[in-house]
Design a protein around this nucleic acid. Structure first.
Ligand SMILES: Nc1ccn([C@H]2C[C@H](O)[C@@H](COP(=O)(O)OP(=O)(O)OP(=O)(O)O)O2)c(=O)n1
Ligand SMILES: [Mg+2]
Length: 933
DNA sequence: CTTGGTGTGTTCC
DNA sequence: TGGAACACA
């Protein structure tokens, strides 16, 4: 029953809620005997006791920090209890924490629009609820205000003197208070209730900030940390921000913040006020400049996104040091593990939330030992995502191979069979993104995925059946959960019974509808032979979260531009401006001094690091590189920074800027400090080398360019190693007669498809024939080819996209790959489905489905029924045949860039060749849709 | 192969 | 666009 927002005040009530030492609390709930004890969560304890990722407040008192090793933590706090992160498939498994986060979200989303900001944080827009409370039962009229609310810290209230709670009560009930303050008071009461509810239902404590925008709320939630809440009244904003070190502000904790410090000399938010918006824009770009100008004044119009579920899922692992993967086989093994986890989570998301991911991405990091100076990053690659563990594994491996070829190909390091020659993989990850809710319709996907199991069919049934029994962690609703878990299960068992982290969004409009997606709606949904197509495994949802607001509230969501406009408007309106108070020079000197002191302590730390590490480091240096060793010892011998000048640094430096790699080595092996532990406040007092490094660090990470020595055409190079290993490249002298374009041929070690039909039929390359650019959309293609191709005429079967092939051919017109490429999925268009054998869709009618039995991989953009699409399997002849049988071939516009090399004899000049025209755009990696051996 | 490990989200080109 | 870079939990 939201009350309309009064015109008079655009003030919002925004809360940020952050769980206290979250993973630790999760573990303490699981093992209650840990409560009250100094506790931390580690992963992989075998090496140096593992790495800490969460630290309880008792242990923090002893100086235990996140990212310490387990051994260090023990040293700092001998009684510390270290709990290990669960391990599954040989890697850390964060499922329990995701699920715990979901529990919390399901509670915190009850009172207003809610945004899941991270695994343990949410933002809430409580404006409506606060306005409603103010209208119906304002705090001043309340007999009793929640204890918890009264414990709020209210910035600006002098907390030092006298009774804090009395002060707070007075503030809450002041009748003469500003409307905005009253709203915040209501917000604080609501938040206190929510926090109590979280505690009651989950046994977790959390902290919160309540303010007029996200930025301030976030700032506030961290100010008083375990189990407390902090309110930022409008009037306190200036006083809060003015002395605040800029690095404390969200988004300024990294390079941008350092740049402000080093390049602008700005160390506190107050000092930022002196710069005009134009000045900031000039240095940091229009968007960032305006953003900086605004946040310095406490202005942030960013909306709370109504989103309770993650936008992507990922699974990754690092392989540090000697564990680096050096064979394709080991990469494949780990990719398989990662893909299995990912597939499980995708399956859960589908089951619980009816969401489908459309893009699979592979990331990796690698090193090349044969240095070769082109120190490029391992590229990431993506392709359309097909559901099912086996398909995901296969596609991920293909992506990896494509990326590896690119990585290796450019610098001459070779692969020898599957064994690496000079490369190593130090991290792998797969992720799934472009997740969209499936459209509503008439057919439940559950029936398909779960076969005979009717109980999974409707969401209601799922809810009724699964929630109570499957969720030892948390029944939905208000029933509180007691900590009576079975103690540590064996890993295997736990893995099988683990709970999905995904949550079901119940969309009001859709609750009673079954899903329209059916078996082959979307190629993406074909389950493969893998294990997780069964109903049971991990389908157990533990939460259904009702997406109350947001998702569909079409107008407010999305568009950055709108927000930016709001920003401007707000800066003119009230928001929380301190805009008149620029150039507060008076406290500035003091500030400087203060930060300087802090800075010198950081310098001290720096020296200590140097000294502490000098002897072991020296030893280490001996084991590494001469360069490092020498720079290390030169540093030690000089003893002071001021003497460490250019002459001391490795020769390369005198020639110019050192490479990043060299700097890295210097940084870590010779001196052993971390670049972001240096306090830029004292930048000018740092030794020149370190200044230089800091500047280098600040510079945008350049894409290391592929060395230019290569004279071949860039348009040709885009296809190098794209589909296989390049065996040969040849570039005719002449240009295409038709287009005037340059062109070339790449011969791979495998069959490819490309513009070959024309070449074959002609016998002579390119004579009198046109080259056609591959285009994504039917319309574009039609226009482009209108001169040579008539609608309604069948030319020849072919493929929409060049890709690797086995002995058989797939034909795809505007299939999911095209969708992937032209971004339709990303634009939120929904997918209709074509069901084998059923006759409801237009596509079906056109294709007379009976003749096309193997309609895997079908995706149709509803918006453009004219480019309905299909994939037909078979040999080239078979495919051509079946297309001729189609009732209405009008849409089947095929041009002659669609053919494969699979039929060619090995001595054919075009065997395994790909013709590349300079007008081509770099294609993306496609899943290997081939069938057969 | 190294700001520790595993995930997320946004911005820019 | 996809992909890199960045920022954060
Ligand atoms: N570099 C990081 C930071 C955080 N986390 C995980 C562990 C934390 O428990 C959880 C939440 O992060 P927070 O930064 O909110 O830290 P905590 O919740 O542990 O402590 P606090 O009470 O300070 O919020 O995310 C992580 O895995 N790696
Ligand atoms: Mg937290």
């Amino acid at each position: 029953m939201p009350v309309a927002r009064p015109e008079s005040s655009g003030a919002r009530v925004i809360a940020h809620v952050d769980m206290d030492c979250f993973y630790v609390q999760v573990e303490q709930r699981k093992q209650p005997h840990l409560r009250g004890q100094p506790t931390a969560v580690v992963q992989y304890n075998s090496w140096k006791g593992g790495g800490l990722i969460a630290v309880g407040y008792e242990a923090r008192k002893d100086g235990v920090k996140r990212s310490m090793r387990g051994d260090e933590a023990k040293k700092a706090c001998p009684q510390i209890q270290l709990v290990q992160v669960p391990v599954a498939r040989g890697k850390a498994d964060l499922t329990t924490y995701r699920n715990a986060g979901s529990e919390v979200v399901s509670i915190l989303s009850r009172k207003g629009r809610c945004e899941r900001a991270s695994i343990d944080e949410v933002y809430l827009d409580l404006t409506d609820a606060a306005e409603a409370m103010l209208a119906e039962s304002p705090p001043e009229s309340l007999e009793r205000i929640d204890e918890e609310a009264l414990k709020s810290h209210v910035l600006g209230l002098n907390e030092d003197g006298g009774n804090l709670k009395a002060n707070a009560r007075e503030w809450f009930q002041r009748s003469e208070a500003d409307h905005r303050d009253k709203l915040l008071a209501c917000g604080a009461i609501i938040v206190a209730e929510l926090r109590m509810q979280v505690l009651k239902e989950t046994e977790f404590t959390c902290s919160a900030g309540i303010a007029h925008n996200k930025m301030l709320a976030k700032l506030a939630s961290g100010m008083n940390k375990p189990a407390q809440q902090t309110v930022v009244p409008f009037a306190s904003v200036e006083g809060l921000l003015e002395p605040l070190p800029i690095k404390k502000m969200k988004q300024l904790g990294g390079k941008l913040g350092s740049s402000l410090q080093i390049d602008l000399g700005v160390n506190t938010v107050g000092e930022l006020l002196q710069f005009s918006e134009e000045k900031l824009q000039e240095r940091y770009g229009v968007n960032t400049g305006t953003w900086l100008w605004n946040i310095a004044r406490g202005i942030s119009g960013e909306e709370v996104q109504g989103r309770l579920l993650p936008k992507s899922h990922g699974s990754g692992k690092t392989f540090p040091g000697p564990q680096a993967l050096k064979t394709i086989a080991s990469v494949e093994h780990w990719l398989n593990e990662l893909c299995e986890e990912l597939s499980e989570r995708l399956q859960s998301d589908l089951d619980l939330n009816k969401r489908i991911a459309h893009t699979l991405t592979l990331h990796a990091t690698a090193f090349k030992s044969s240095d070769s100076e082109s120190h490029r990053n391992f590229p990431s690659k993506s392709c359309p995502l097909r559901y099912g563990p086996t398909k995901i594994k296969e596609d991920a491996l293909n992506l990896f191979q494509a990326a590896l070829r690119e990585y290796i190909g450019s610098s001459g390091v070779s692969t020898h069979g599957s064994r690496s020659r000079g490369w190593g993989i130090t991290s792998l990850s797969v992720s799934a993104s472009k997740i969209v809710a499936v459209p509503t319709g008439t057919h439940s996907i559950m029936r398909y995925f779960h076969g005979q199991d009717r109980s999974c069919c409707s969401s209601e049934q799922v809810k009724d059946r699964l929630i109570p029994e499957a969720a030892p962690l948390s029944p939905s609703g208000t029933k509180s959960y007691s900590g009576s878990h079975p103690t540590e299960l064996p890993i295997e068992y736990r893995e099988e019974t683990r709970i999905s982290g995904a949550m079901r969004i119940v969309d009001e409009k859709e609750t009673n509808e079954e899903l329209c997606i059916r078996e082959d709606v979307c190629d993406a949904l074909q389950p493969d032979d893998g294990q997780d197509s069964s109903c049971s495994s991990q389908g157990a949802p533990h939460e259904f979260i009702k997406e109350t607001s947001a998702v569909s509230s079409s107008g407010t969501r999305c568009c950055m531009e709108l927000n930016q406009n709001e920003l401007h408007m707000e800066s003119q309106a009230e928001e929380t401006g301190t805009k008149c108070s620029r150039h507060g020079t008076r406290p500035r000197e003091q500030k400087r001094k203060m930060v300087k002191d802090k800075g010198s302590s950081s310098i001290l730390r720096f020296f200590q690091n140097c000294n502490n590490s000098s002897s072991p480091k020296q030893e280490h240096a001996r084991n590494t590189d001469e360069t490092q060793a020498s720079s290390s010892s030169s540093f030690q011998s000089t003893g002071t920074f001021s003497e460490l000048n250019e002459a001391d640094v490795p020769k390369e430096n005198s020639l110019g800027m050192p490479t990043l790699g060299q700097q890295d080595e210097l940084r870590r092996d010779a001196w052993d400090y971390k670049i972001d532990e240096i306090d830029p406040t004292v930048f000018n007092e740092l030794p020149p080398q370190i200044q230089q490094e800091l500047r280098a660090w600040l510079r945008p990470q350049k894409r290391a360019n592929i060395p230019k020595r290569d004279t071949s055409q860039p348009w040709l190079k885009m296809f190098f190693n794209k589909y296989g290993v390049v065996k040969e490249v040849f570039i005719p002298e002449k240009r295409s007669k038709a287009t005037g374009n340059r062109f070339g041929f790449i011969r791979y070690d495998c069959p490819v498809s490309a513009d070959l039909a024309v070449l074959r039929t002609n016998g002579v390359w390119l004579d009198d024939k046109k080259l056609f650019v591959k285009l994504a959309s039917f319309e574009a293609k039609k226009n482009r080819l209108s001169n040579s191709i008539r609608e309604g005429e069948i030319y020849k079967a072919g493929m929409g996209h060049t890709k690797k092939h086995d002995s058989r051919v797939n034909v795809a017109f505007q299939n999911h790959s095209s969708l992937h490429n032209n971004g339709n999925a990303a634009q939120g268009l929904s997918f209709a489905q074509v069901l084998r054998g059923a006759g409801e869709t237009s596509l079906q009618n056109k294709f007379q489905s009976k003749q096309i039995q193997a309609t895997e991989d079908i995706a149709v953009v509803e918006k453009s029924p004219d480019i309905d699409c299909s994939i037909v399997e078979g040999t080239m002849e078979e495919v051509t045949d079946s297309m001729k049988k189609m009732a209405d071939p009008l849409e089947v516009l095929v041009d002659n860039d669609d053919c494969t090399t699979v039929d060619l004899a090995s001595d054919d000049p075009l065997f395994n060749c790909h013709l590349v025209d300079e007008a081509y755009e770099a294609p993306s990696v496609q899943p290997n849709l081939s069938i057969g051996p």
